[in-house]
Computed example of a mutant assay.
Amino acid sequence: MRYLFYFLLSIIVISCAAAKYKPLKINGVSFVAARDAIDSTHTKPVVNINANAAAIMPFGFIKDVNHPEIIHNTERQWFGETRAGAKQYIKTLHKDHIEVMIKPQIWIWHGEFTGLLKMNTEADWKLLESSYSSFILEYAELAEEVNVEVFCIGTELEEFVKNRPEYWQQLIKEIRAVYSGKLTYAANWDEFWTTPFWSELDYVGIDAYFPVSDMQTPTIEDCIKGWEKHTQGLKAFSEKLDRPILFTEFGYRSVDYSAKEPWRYDRSMTSVNFEAQNNATQALFEAVWQEDWFAGGYLWKWFIEHNKAGGLEDNQFTPQNKPVEDIIKAHYSQF
């Protein structure tokens, strides 16, 4: 019997070794800040789609690009946008074994694109830098306090990064002094090539709105073909830097032409097209998720009131209560 036992054990070990290894990925959602605190009823839908990570996004606000003071952590903000709210969200997510990335973001009044934030004078640059350091270090300290797994040092700030590289190098050192976890930066999909400080971070972070198909209802096959021109460059970039690629945002609207310019969120796109969202999402998973250079990503975006979010008349990014939710759940279960 002893020999039979060891024979069977050896067969099991050999079978397991022969099975294709699938590394654990960051299967994340972008958890949208709200007015109220959360509890397990808000995190359970995240668990139900087999997500293992969430991005928490406290906000700072710039009223005027010509007076670049960042207003943050005030009583006038929604609870989820503040330090106290971020802390409460993180603790609740951690209870359900959901790892967290804190991803502080800036909103410029009237919705101006943050990538174009650029000062005209040295005095204004200094004001912006001082204000940004106050904003970002507050959340780096919180990240260390509550053992957050990943911290994002900025989101889509191309002109700021390009014009003030020395500031960003110093800021990373200051963040490292207070936070001991993994660092990334959320570069726009066409910005990351020139971001100068990837070697100082742990992940190459990309808001991954790559154009992959011009079709009104893109097919899975067309989107996968469209990904080929991007994945070759991403793989080479990752290998050159010896850093994994992390999609700090990814996702598609349930709208016509959803994979043509995936970053678009304007209201002029009024159609509802679930097949387009389904196919584009499935293609992204098939094109990148199993790659060794790819660490995972955070789906854009997930609202805390799951039963009220998305639905069959919604053409925005959220997958909630739409057919694509089942695709995400099935894929996340594999990793």
Rank of each mutant, 00 (worst) to 15 (best):
I90K: 09
I49K: 15
Q77N: 13
V46D: 07
D96T: 15
I98R: 02
A54W: 12
A53Q: 05
I98T: 09
V100F: 10
N73L: 13
N52E: 07
K103M: 09
E99A: 12
I98A: 12
K87S: 11
T43A: 12
T74C: 04
L93I: 12
K95I: 05
I98E: 12
F59V: 08
N50P: 01
H72Y: 14
G60E: 14
I71T: 09
F61E: 05
H94D: 13
H72G: 10
A84Q: 10
H94F: 00
P68Y: 01
T82W: 04
V65A: 04
F59C: 02
I102D: 01
N52L: 14
K44D: 11
W78A: 02
E75R: 06
I62R: 15
G85M: 06
I71P: 00
K91W: 00
V46E: 09
H72S: 15
I71N: 12
F79R: 05
T92G: 08
A51C: 08
F61M: 03
E99L: 06
E69I: 00
G60S: 03
A51R: 12
T92L: 01
T43E: 06
I56Y: 07
K87T: 05
K44T: 02
E75K: 08
A86R: 07
I90P: 00
N48V: 01
N52P: 00
P58C: 05
G80F: 02
P58R: 12
